[in-house]
């Protein structure tokens, strides 16, 4: 019998934890052992999560492949599916399709410096790269992480990032934090303690704090769409070639596999599907595809 790509595989919620007022951490385990074992994904790929009776929505996997076949996700509530997911208790079942999309070219990036720039929820897919590159530390040179938040309350994976701040370069990565609300007390405290690694302002301000070596750096950006333009410009100013600046896009998606047409972008000479040609594109693509950023 022919396989039906639209039928979800069942997965159990093994953890559903509130991270901030808006976001939850979700950990899934595919029920069927064989399915779980065959579920190999590239970092930066996404899955479609189904709640029967509510609908389906795409989410980035924010963990690297692990032995226990667990999938970590970070979900911001607000819409129908997202709010429904967050109400589900541990042990509940959801449907999973995927993994879909291209993901980040981790092999190609080996031997280079990595600069990861995350804004808000964009931290989700970048966390998986951070996990992977720290685990395979020898494959990469300097790893730098810029994380832009609005206030301390909206900071995701707080424990993980706080320990990177506290650990300094010993942690294997240079972690920088920017916050937008200059009156946020907890952020001010952090800044007092780690003045060289934490500052107020938008994430692109963090470029003032560090040197980028343009020849051998891959920059990976993920965040709200407005961020791509600004961070892209900062990087271009520093001579990082546009084809080595990677961005991950979000669009309305219904199928994830190039069928439903909702995620199509571009102009006559550059039509692309975000779901199957992306969600990872280069800044060069963005400069040559109308409406991408």
């Amino acid at each position: 019998m022919m396989e039906n790509v639209f039928l979800p595989k069942l997965a159990k919620i093994v953890k559903n934890e509130k991270m901030t007022a808006m976001e939850h951490f979700l950990r899934l385990q595919l029920l069927d052992k064989k399915t779980a074992e065959e579920f190999q994904y590239n970092l930066g790929q996404f899955i479609e999560i189904s709640i029967m009776g509510v609908g389906e929505a795409p989410f980035s996997i924010c963990s690297m492949q692990n032995q226990k076949y667990l999938l970590d996700l970070c979900i911001r509530s607000g819409g129908r599916v997202t709010s429904a997911i967050l109400r589900l208790g541990e042990g509940s079942l959801v449907g999973v399709r995927g993994p879909y999309g291209n993901g980040f070219p981790l092999k190609e990036m080996e031997g280079s410096n990595l600069l990861l720039v995350a804004g808000g929820l964009g931290v989700a897919p970048l966390r998986s790269i951070l996990q992977y590159s720290l685990k395979n530390r020898a494959k990469y040179r300097d790893i730098t992480f810029f994380y832009g938040i609005r206030t301390y309350d909206t900071m995701l994976f707080r424990d993980e990032f706080n320990s990177l701040l506290a650990g300094g370069d010993e942690s294997g990565c240079k972690f920088y934090l920017s916050y937008e609300d200059p009156k946020d007390e907890q952020c001010l405290l952090l800044e007092a303690e780690y003045s060289d690694r934490c500052m107020s302002g938008v994430v692109s301000k963090l470029f003032e704090r560090t040197e980028i070596s343009p020849k051998d750096t891959y920059a990976i950006i993920c965040g709200p769409s407005i961020m791509y333009k600004f961070v892209g410009q900062e990087l271009t100013k520093r001579d990082v070639p546009p084809e080595r600046i990677l961005i991950s896009l979000e669009r309305r998606m219904r199928c994830g596999i190039g069928k439903c047409g909702n995620c199509i972008i571009g102009d006559g000479s550059s039509i692309r599907y975000v779901c199957k040609d992306g969600p990872v594109f280069t800044y060069w693509d963005a400069l040559h595809t109308k409406g991408m950023i």
Partner: peptide
């Protein structure tokens, strides 16, 4: 051929169907 997807729940509030429609 763009399409949209919706879940329709029956009156019993537990069974239903996933449906796609041209968008």
């Amino acid at each position: 051929r763009c399409y949209d997807v919706v879940d329709n729940v029956n009156m019993d509030l537990k069974s239903g169907e996933r449906q796609r429609m041209l968008n």
